[in-house]
Design a protein around this nucleic acid. Structure first.
Lengths: 114, 114
DNA sequence: CGGCATCCCCCGTGATACTG
DNA sequence: CAGTATCACGGGGGATGCCG
């Protein structure tokens, strides 16, 4: 059986989960990593041209602390650092997919109005 | 078949959906309305003691514009206004539940460490 | 290549007082 | 009862320059 959620406690739990996903660049970073392959810092910069280095590293670090992203440093010259998803981070994919499907429900109703 | 999402376009679509859920009080309001019954403004105030009137009305209005919340005014004295979820808003419940389950996955791994 | 430090601005949030 | 109006603050985000 599951836990007994009050409206307040459930809201708090979901809110905590949402905080991990908030931030202007988290989603675009995440979706670039959902492919499964590790990407270098510079590759992410190239993939997301409008992001600044500061924001890229900041959001990556937060997600790393949160356990969504893993960071692998290759000690060599020139430096090479790769970013990928943890298992838990990869588990976000179907969750965000359900969010996407929810968003689509709205469009369907809009089309009915036309 | 579904649509063809690029990392960028999918991230944008999910980001738009997340913006509807962002805000310090959206979740707690939402979970109080998931019950299915309409609640009066003052009932929501009572249920969420720490919220100010300004924030309560602000978040309710935003969700109303976004199509998540519906507002029904009973023209009488004293005034009576009730808030509830739209069908689309109610459809958020299973989505947030999957988010909750995702958050639980993390706790399970933490317990393994102990 | 892959960062970190600094300065600055804007907006979400909060406290308080007032109104139909 | 159900809002509106105003002021103030803190932090997220952006631009730029320097470092190992």
């Amino acid at each position: 059986m599951g836990k007994k959620w009050t409206p307040t406690s459930a809201a708090h739990a979901v809110g905590q989960a949402l905080k991990i996903l908030e931030g202007k660049w988290k989603m675009v970073i995440l979706f670039h990593l959902f492919g499964g392959n590790m990407l270098r810092f510079s590759e992410l910069e190239k993939a997301i041209p409008s992001i600044t280095q500061k924001m890229l590293i900041q959001q990556l670090r937060q997600m790393e602390v949160d356990g969504v992203v893993r960071r692998i440093v290759h000690h060599q010259v020139p430096p090479k650092v790769e970013y990928g998803l943890t298992d838990w981070g990869q588990a976000l994919c179907p969750v965000l997919d359900s969010l996407l499907k929810w968003a689509d429900l709205r469009e369907e109703r809009s089309e009915d109005d036309a």
